[in-house]
Structures are given as structure tokens and as C-alpha cells.
């Protein structure tokens, strides 16, 4: 595997520095940010082209997160959005979870349960209602 050139590293650092502003809620497009993003595959390896010109699809998790100065940098400081890892965001995002973290199981209705979801109208007799979210209750 080839190592990033010094120039690339510098560009990456510049991009990530601007990301701090992005994450803090600056609405305008980040000028010069994300200009040179080294793409990484799901294993975290740099992506190179195959013989037919194709290449592995990049992973958000490894491309955007985990590099010093980028997202998911533990050294970013307590007040920086950059400290949040991919998993920090993903596991607590309702857009991502959609009920995957609230699964009640198959046929959850129980008239005697203290869980209002189980005693509610939703789960009664419907096998596709296994959570209050989308996953399990499409």
C-alpha cells in the first residue's frame, strides 16, 4: 500500500479544519474544504483503480472518520464536533436507527405488559409491528 504524500496530508488537514466550522452549523458551503479527500474502502485502505478502470466504492465510515484532524478524532477536544466517531453518530441517530434499537420482538402484544407499546393498538395481531420505529414495523 502506498502512503499518502506529504501534500495530500496537508490538504487533508486543511479540509478537516474547515469541517470544524461546517459541523458547528455554518450554513454556507465550505470553501476549500473537502477538496482533496483520500477515499478509503470499508477496510480503511486507500482505493486504487482496478485493471478495468473500476475501483472499490468508498466507505463513509473510513473515509470521513478516523483520520487525525478529521471526523472522529479523539484528540479534537471536548467542545469539537470532530470528536464524535461514526458510531457515536450512527448508533444514536434516529435517521439511522429507525427503531432498530427498540425492537420488541415478534408478536409483542401483551395486554398485561407495563410497556404501553405492547398493550397498544399497534402491535395487536400484526406481525409486522415489532418496534415503534420503521425497522420491524414497516
Amino acid at each position: 500500500m502506498k502512503q499518502p504524500t506529504k501534500k495530500t496530508v496537508l490538504l487533508t488537514a486543511a479540509s478537516c479544519a474547515t469541517l470544524i466550522g461546517v459541523g458547528a452549523g455554518i450554513a454556507t458551503a465550505a470553501v476549500s474544504a473537502h477538496k482533496a479527500i483520500p477515499l478509503k474502502d470499508p477496510a480503511g485502505l486507500a482505493i486504487t483503480k482496478n485493471a478495468d478502470g473500476s475501483a472499490k466504492a468508498f466507505s463513509i465510515k473510513t473515509t470521513c472518520f478516523g483520520t487525525a484532524g478529521c471526523h472522529g478524532d479523539a484528540a479534537a477536544g471536548t467542545s469539537s464536533v470532530l470528536k464524535y466517531t461514526y458510531n457515536d453518530i450512527e448508533k444514536h441517530s434516529y435517521h439511522a436507527q429507525l427503531g432498530a434499537n427498540e425492537i420488541r420482538g415478534f408478536n409483542p402484544f401483551n395486554i398485561d405488559s407495563t410497556d404501553a407499546f405492547r398493550t397498544g393498538a399497534g402491535p395487536q395481531g400484526k406481525n409486522w409491528v415489532q418496534s415503534p420505529g420503521h425497522v420491524g414495523s414497516w
Binding site: 502506498k2 502512503q3 499518502p4 504524500t5 495530500t8 469541517l19 466550522g21 461546517v22 459541523g23 458547528a24 452549523g25 455554518i26 450554513a27 454556507t28 458551503a29 465550505a30 470553501v31 476549500s32 474544504a33 473537502h34 477538496k35 482533496a36 479527500i37 483520500p38 477515499l39 478509503k40 486507500a46 482505493i47 486504487t48 483503480k49 475501483a55 468508498f58
Partner: peptide
């Protein structure tokens, strides 16, 4: 070092 993407001006925080 591998493929490098350019998303300049395309990334928005909000």
C-alpha cells in the same frame, strides 16, 4: 496514494 475526491463547495454543515 490512491484516489482522492474533490467535493469542494458541495459539503454543507446545515
Amino acid at each position: 496514494a490512491g484516489l482522492v475526491a474533490n467535493l469542494e463547495y458541495k459539503i454543507v454543515g446545515k
